[in-house]
Amino acid sequence: MNSKIDTIIFDLGGVLVDWNPQYLYEKIFSTQEEIDWFLNNVCTPDWNIEQDAGRTIAEANTIKIKEFPKYSNEIKLFYDRWEEMFSGPIHKSVEIQQKLLKSPNYRVYALTNWSAETWDRGRNLFPFLNDFEGVIVSGQEKMRKPYDEIYQLIINRFNITPENSVFIDDNYENTVAATKNGINSIHFKTSEKLLIDLQKLNVII
Rank of each mutant, 00 (worst) to 15 (best):
D131N: 05
T7P: 14
E173N: 14
D6C: 07
E84L: 10
T190F: 11
K189C: 07
P146F: 02
F68P: 14
T161V: 11
D36K: 04
H91V: 09
F132A: 00
L16V: 12
T112E: 05
S185I: 02
I160F: 12
R55C: 01
Q32R: 05
N164Q: 15
D11M: 08
N20D: 15
V15G: 05
D120T: 06
V108P: 13
G54M: 00
V42F: 13
N105V: 03
K189I: 11
R81T: 10
H91Q: 07
E59P: 08
K64D: 12
A177W: 05
V15N: 04
Q140K: 13
L16C: 11
R55E: 12
P69N: 06
D6N: 14
L101Q: 10
P104F: 03
F126S: 03
E26K: 15
E133Y: 12
T56H: 04
D46K: 01
V166D: 06
A53K: 11
V137E: 06
K180C: 06
G134V: 09
D11H: 09
W37A: 01
K64H: 08
A58V: 15
K92V: 01
F126Y: 06
P162Y: 00
A177D: 10
I155L: 14
D11L: 07
N130C: 04
T62K: 12
K200H: 13
P104W: 05
F167Y: 15
S103T: 10
L153K: 13
D36I: 02
D170I: 10
E173H: 06
S93C: 07
R144Y: 13
K142V: 08
A178F: 10
F68S: 09
N159E: 10
A60H: 03
L195F: 11
A60T: 05
G88S: 01
N61S: 06
R81Q: 13
Q199V: 02
N164P: 15
I65R: 14
R121D: 15
K70Y: 15
E163T: 12
Y109V: 00
K145H: 10
Y23E: 07
F38L: 01
S138Y: 14
W82A: 01
E192P: 04
Q140W: 08
Y79H: 10
Q199D: 05
K180W: 08
N164I: 05
I9C: 09
K4H: 04
E95N: 03
D52S: 04
E26P: 10
L77T: 13
G139W: 13
T56W: 15
M143G: 07
I205A: 03
I75S: 10
E84R: 03
T179G: 04
V137K: 01
D18C: 03
L24C: 11
A177E: 09
K70M: 15
I183R: 01
D36M: 03
K64P: 09
L100Q: 06
P89H: 00
T161L: 07
P162E: 00
D131K: 04
M143R: 10
D170N: 15
P104T: 01
K92M: 08
N130R: 06
I186F: 12
T161P: 08
L77P: 14
W119V: 05
H91M: 03
S30V: 11
V108H: 05
I204A: 07
T112K: 04
V108Y: 04
K27D: 13
T112C: 12
F167Q: 00
E26H: 13
I35V: 15
L39T: 12
G88I: 02
R55V: 08
Y151F: 15
Q97A: 08
F158E: 02
E133W: 08
W114Y: 14
Y147V: 02
